[in-house]
């Protein structure tokens, strides 16, 4: 039996780290910076432990077991990437932007169903395909969040430069070219990953044997995601055509595209309690004994 860690543990760590990051507005403080990194690191450890526990209890990888766990994996990835960036670029106030996303992701899991997804236990043969589908989607969503944040930072930096305001001592943001580059790559990467993620989901549905539970292509999450994907494809087309210095328009477009995507995905999950809510009554779902 592994010792338990609750969501409160790492949520509290991230809240404290975010509070410390906000002190950047008052000026540079190495001590506050180190404490912020320390709390984020401690939170990440507790977060990892929690996910390992969940995986042990459900006998499933966290990406597959439930939407609750899937969201926590997304938050975990965001924190991990943030920590690496924060160590490499310790002058930049990245935490002020990233940590609220983490807090929203972790806090929103309170509204989600903890119970493992029954149909996953049933689809023994296709579980690796399911893992690929969930993995591509989670990486795509994390890249989308990165694109969204870099677009917001770009607009703030652009506004500061245009209005000729000094930047507060501790609140440094990357340069416009760097933010534009991050924004463009994050958007393209999220588009590719989400496209592959949706494609693997479709394959999974089409290839499902009759006796196994499967997701209906007419589910709201599938239909709305398809619509958002089309919007993203339009933005990608525009990006590929306009290669010139149009950073501000790109930032606004990505905010619209990725914002729609994230709102749709998370909104639907929060509203329905699970990502594929329509298939929960699968007749042949067989759930093994869950370890407690």
């Amino acid at each position: 039996m592994m010792p338990h860690t609750s969501i409160y543990c790492f949520l509290a760590c991230y809240v404290v780290a975010f509070g410390l990051e906000l002190t950047r507005f008052r000026g540079k403080s190495t001590v506050s910076r180190l404490f912020s990194l320390g709390f984020t690191g401690a939170g990440l450890l507790a977060h990892t432990w929690y996910l390992l526990n969940r995986s042990y209890e459900t006998s499933l990888p966290p990406l597959l077991s439930s939407t609750h766990d899937w969201m926590l994996v997304a938050a975990w990835l965001v924190v991990l990437i943030y920590l690496v960036l924060a160590v490499l670029q310790n002058e930049m106030a990245i935490g002020v932007f990233v940590l609220p996303v983490v807090l929203v992701l972790v806090a929103s899991t309170y509204g989600l169903n903890h119970a493992p997804n029954n149909e996953i236990y049933a689809m023994q043969a296709r579980r690796s395909w399911g893992l690929l589908h969930a993995g591509l989607l989670v990486f795509g969503v994390v890249a989308a969040a990165g694109g969204l944040l870099s677009a917001i930072m770009y607009l703030l930096q652009h506004r500061r430069l245009k209005t000729r305001h000094a930047q507060p001592g501790g609140f440094q943001m990357p340069s416009l070219p760097r933010l534009a580059q991050a924004n463009r790559w994050a958007f393209l990467l999220s588009f590719v990953l989400l496209t592959l993620g949706y494609a693997s989901g479709l394959m999974l549905t089409i290839a499902a044997p009759d006796e196994e539970a499967s997701v209906s292509l007419m589910e709201p999450v599938v239909l709305i995601s398809g619509g958002v994907w089309t919007l993203m494809a339009g933005v990608v087309g525009w990006l590929l055509v306009h290669r010139g210095p149009v950073g501000r328009q790109v930032a606004w477009l990505t905010i619209v595209g990725l914002g729609c995507l994230l709102l749709t995905l998370f909104g639907l999950q929060l509203a329905t309690g699970n990502i594929h809510s329509g298939s929960r009554s699968a007749a042949h779902a067989v759930q093994p004994e869950v370890r407690r």
């Binding site: 000026g27 540079k28 930096q157 500061r160 430069l161 000729r164 000094a166 930047q167 001592g169 943001m173 340069s175 416009l176 070219p177 760097r178």
Partner: peptide, 24 residues
């Protein structure tokens, strides 16, 4: 202390606070 924070010459503010954020 914040004694060394913030640039205090016109050219250093121009290049450090603005120029280096417009171009990498």
């Amino acid at each position: 202390t914040g004694l060394a924070e913030g640039r205090v010459s016109i050219a250093s503010v121009a290049v450090g606070d603005f120029g280096r954020k417009i171009f990498d």
